[in-house]
Amino acid sequence: MKIVVVGSINLDFTLQVDKLPKKGETILAKNYKISLGGKGANQAIAAKRLGADVFMIGAVGSDDKGKYALNKLEEEGLNLSGIYQIDDITGNAVITIDNQGFNTIVVYPGANEKLSTQWVEKHSALFKEADFVILQLEIPIETVESAIRLAKENNTKVILNPAPVKDISEEIYKYVDCITPNETELFKMTGTGDIQQGAKKLLEKGVREVVVTLGEKGCYYTNGSEEIIIDSIKVNAIDTTAAGDSFNAALAVALCKFKDIKRALKYANVVGGLTTTKLGAKDALPFKNEVEDYIKNNNYI
C-alpha cells in the first residue's frame, strides 16, 4: 500500500503540568520534551509504522530545527523527495498537557506556510502511485485544495482531516472521499452541535463519507445510508497529542488492508487509543506489532 501525506512538519515543545493555566496565570512544568511533530509528519510516521510505503510532501526551514526534522523523518524510512527546505524558520508548536491528558496547543507555522501549489504539482507522479492521499489544514488552503484536485485527477482516494478548521471552497468537498473532523471541528464547520446533523451537512456538500472522532467516546461514521458507532478502547491516557493524526493514518492503512469500514474504524480506534498512552507526538505513535498484539490479546477485531 502506498500513501502520500501532504502537510505540516513541526518541532513540538511539550510541557507537562498538573493543570492547564488560566488566563494570566504562571505555573511551573514538571516535565519538558522536544520532539518531531506537525499533523502531516505525525500522520506520515504513523502510516509508515503501520506498514505503508509513505511519501511525505511538506516544508521545513534551513535552520537547525529543519535539519533535525529531516533526520528524524529519514530515521523512520519515509520517502523525503517531496520535502521542500526553504530559507525560513521550521514550524513549531508549544503543547501544554495536564494530569488528565488534556492539552492546549499553540502552533507557529513557519516554513509550512510556504508549501506552495507549485511544489505539490511538481510531485504529481507520487499521486499516480498512491492508494490514498491524506491532508490536514496546517498548510495554505490553496495548497490543500490543489493537492485534492490532483488526487482526484489521478483517481486516488482522499482523506481530509480538517484541522485546524479553515474555509474550504465548496467545490472541493465533492472531491473528498472521507472527511474526519472531531466534535469541535464539526461544530465550527457546520454550525451544529448535533453530530448526525453536522455529518449530514458535510455529506450534502458532496463528501462521500464522514468520520467524527469523539475522543474517549470513540468515533461516529456515516455515508448517508449507513451509520456506525465504535467505542474507544480503554487505556491509561497521559497525552492526547497526535491521537487524531494516528487515527487518520490508521484509517487509510486499514482501508487498504480490510476493504471494510467497520474493521477499519476499529483498527484506527486502537491506534489512536494506544497513541495516548505515551508522552509526545512522534514517540507515542505505535508500531504495527503493538497494534496487532493489542487486537489479538483483547480479541478486538
Results as ranks from 00 to 15, higher is better:
E153Y: 13
K19R: 14
P21I: 14
L285F: 06
A47N: 05
K23T: 15
L137A: 07
G206Q: 12
S35L: 06
L70V: 15
A264D: 11
Y173G: 00
K128M: 09
V271F: 12
N182A: 03
I139N: 03
I9M: 01
C256Y: 13
V54S: 09
N161M: 02
W119N: 02
I134K: 08
E171D: 15
L274V: 08
I168Q: 00
L160P: 08
N161W: 07
L279Q: 08
D18S: 15
K188M: 11
L78G: 07
T240I: 08
G38I: 04
L70H: 11
E292Y: 10
R263C: 00
K72C: 03
K296C: 08
E75G: 11
A52E: 12
D98F: 08
E292P: 05
L265P: 06
M1S: 13
I148A: 00
A284K: 02
M189G: 01
P21L: 02
V4W: 07
A249S: 15
Q196L: 07
I95T: 12
V106W: 03
N92G: 09
N79D: 15
A281D: 04
T192G: 10
G272P: 11
N10H: 11
L115M: 12
T240K: 08
V94T: 14
V144C: 11
A59R: 07
Y220T: 00
G198R: 04
S124A: 14
V158C: 07
Q197H: 12
P162F: 00
E290R: 09
V291S: 09
N71P: 02
D167H: 07
K114S: 12
S225A: 01
K259C: 01
V211N: 05
Y68V: 10
L203P: 09
I301S: 02
L202Y: 12
K122Y: 06
Y175I: 00
L80V: 05
S225V: 05
Y108V: 15
C219L: 14
T240L: 00
Y108G: 12
